[in-house]
Simulated assay, not measured.
Amino acid sequence: MRQQFTDALKEAMKAGDKRRVSTVRLITAALKDRDIEARGAGKEPLSDDEILGVLQKMVKQRQESLKIYEDAGRADLAEQEREELAIIMGFMPRQMDEAQVKAAIDAAVAETGAASLKDMGKVMAALKERYAGQMDFGKASAAIKARLSGQA
């Protein structure tokens, strides 16, 4: 994945796409920060799944900022966030739709033998292991909670 970012940066620089250059640089800076943090803790550099986690966090930040800017009537800043969001999401795997998320949750619940809300952590861990970067775990968490409490 790291090579993808390097290639994207080179292409954007050649094309003179300033927004893409700055966004890819933001991504690489975030990854370097996390690598330095990991090295300080005696861990290896980030794996592809961990990189997807960083990207997912960046997407969530952009979505929150976008909402704030739209609510404040700052169309210029909102447009910048929209562009950055699109660029970051271009590096992520395709997101699962609701039916796929529900099926994945059902499979994870069956596999882990989860029967109550106490088992929610097991289900989340199984989903994060298999579907990093492919689903919104905030929404998945609510769906798991509903499923395990017998509401879905």
Rank of each mutant, 00 (worst) to 15 (best):
E11G: 08
M1A: 13
T23R: 07
D33P: 07
S22P: 05
K32T: 11
M1I: 08
K14L: 08
V24G: 04
K14H: 13
T23I: 00
Q3S: 13
A30C: 02
A12G: 07
L26V: 12
D17C: 06
D17A: 14
A8F: 06
K32P: 07
T6D: 00
A15R: 15
D33N: 14
R34Q: 13
D35T: 01
T23G: 06
S22C: 14
R20W: 05
R2A: 05
K14T: 09
Q4T: 07
F5M: 03
V21C: 09
R19S: 10
L9M: 01
V24F: 13
T23Y: 14
L26P: 07
M13S: 13
L31T: 02
M1N: 09
R2C: 07
L31N: 05
D33L: 06
Q4M: 07
K18W: 10
L31V: 02
K32V: 06
D7M: 09
K18I: 03
R19G: 03
R19Q: 15
K10T: 14
R20Y: 13
E11S: 02
R25N: 09
A12M: 01
M1W: 03
R19T: 10
A15M: 12
Q3P: 03
L26W: 08
G16E: 12
G16F: 10
A12Q: 07
D35E: 11
Q3G: 06
L31C: 00
